[in-house]
Each structure stands twice: as C-alpha cells, then as structure tokens.
Write a protein that binds this DNA or RNA. Structure first.
Lengths: 117, 117
DNA sequence: GAACTTGTAACTATTATTATTACATGATGG
DNA sequence: CCATCATGTAATAATAATAGTTACAAGTTC
C-alpha cells in the first residue's frame, strides 16, 4: 500500500502521509525502505502503546503552553510559570499514563469488535 | 486593578484580558461589574479547581482531534473514529481528573512557597 | 534504464490566534 | 449633571501556526 494510495483513501496529500510515516519511523515504530512501497510495523502490536505513537507524532513535549514573557516586576508573574508547570506536568503525566496502558493490539481488537458487531 | 493595567504587566492587549475574564465570568469563576475596575473571585479559592479554569477557557471540549473525513470504503477508516474516541476519551478523563484535584488555593500556596522559601 | 517508489526541502495557501479599533454601557467624583 | 474612566463586545486587521503543494533527489524493480 503506497503513501499515494493511503493519502487518496484518507483524503490528504501524499506528503503528509510520508511525513507522518517518517516520524513513526524515527521513533522506531514503523520500518520502511526508500523506493519500496508501503511500511510495516517495526515492533509487535502488543509492545506499541498509544503513548509511543503520541510521543512520536507531536514535536513539542508540552500539553499545556504557558505565557512566555511574564513580568518579573509582578509578584505573581515572577514565578507563576514554575508553579503551573508543576501542576500541568502532573496532569499531562496522568494523561500519558493512561495512553501507555493501551496497546495497538487493543485498539485493533476493539475496532474489529465495533465493526463486526 | 484594571484590565489595562493587567494587560500592560502581562504584555498583551487589554481586550485579550477582558475576553479571558469574560470566559471566566461566564463560568461563574469571576465576578465583575461593567464600569467598575477589576474582577474578583466568585467562589472561594478552595472550591475552584484547575479543571474549572481549564473548561472555562477552552472552547472545544476535545483534547485530541480526529480526522473528520475518513473513507467509508476503508475497513479501518469506517469506524476507527469511534474506537479512537474511546481511548482518547479515557486519556482526557485521566488528565481532567488530575486537574480537578488541584484547587486555586493550592496553586497560590505553592506559588508563595516557591517565591519566599 | 523506464517507471515506479520513498524522503525531504522549499514554497504557498489556509486557518487560527492575537491585536487593534470603535463604540455602547455603566460607574464615579466634583 | 457631565466629564472621565471602566468594562463588554463586535468588527476588522495583522500576525503566527498549520496544512498543503511542488519539485526533485535517491532508491527499487523488472
């Protein structure tokens, strides 16, 4: 299945597909060979979690972005960033922990279950 | 403290501040009066959680957005949305649960601790 | 080597965000 | 009472972020 075919089915540009595949390859989730159509899993479906995919695909690591030029003259602005990062980090960790508990296998199995009845 | 003053300190436009305050007011987290400078908490700091603030400020409710025009001819695309929504929903819930366990009071206390200690 | 593929860089278009302007509505103090 | 200063909000403009496109080098296959 070529990137062109996938892109046609999904309804996006082939380059988008190739770029995403490239990210997944860098994360060692997929393996491809230049000039050879298609891509295949580089790991078993049991070993790949949604967290792996999530981390492979996003560029920045932060779920919440924080105002980047607080006023150092302001007693709140001076250090609110580190305070918020503490709590936001906890929230992001909770989300990632949950993602890490779902494997590709589980996704596919639920998908087939929902399809077949 | 006027929206103009806050905006100047933060380094953004006053209208941005007023709009955010407007969202927080709609969520009954702040109370303001037209023509009267400033805004004040509409609830005690112990009762307001980061989840309340998060939900007040974001417009859409979804943490993860899913491709909106999958190919119905494709055995995967046909129902992958509902499958992913299941797992993404779980992840979002985990994140929101964590946010809901932190109150404004806790944020302020940690902020002061980091500043003074 | 002709006809395919992937991989990427450079560029363009589109969308989303942020900022600005303008003004209606309300408060306040002399 | 009215000049002055606030908020609230809509309409518009400017900017930043994202998505899409084009182009082509590099690799494969038959």
């Amino acid at each position: 299945m070529t990137s062109e075919f996938m892109a046609g089915s999904i309804g996006v540009n082939p380059v988008i597909v190739r770029n995403v595949i490239g990210l997944l390859r860098k994360a060692k989730l997929l393996q491809t060979q230049q000039g050879v159509p298609g891509a295949r899993l580089a790991q078993s479906m049991e070993d790949v979690t949604l967290l792996d995919v999530y981390q492979a695909v996003r560029d920045d690591g932060k779920l919440f972005s924080i105002h980047d030029r607080p006023n150092p003259e302001c007693s709140v602005g001076r250090n609110i960033q580190s305070t918020l990062e503490t709590f936001f980090g906890e929230a992001q960790k909770a989300m990632e922990d949950r993602l890490s508990r779902t494997t590709l296998r589980q996704v596919i199995e639920l998908n087939q279950l929902e399809r077949d009845g």
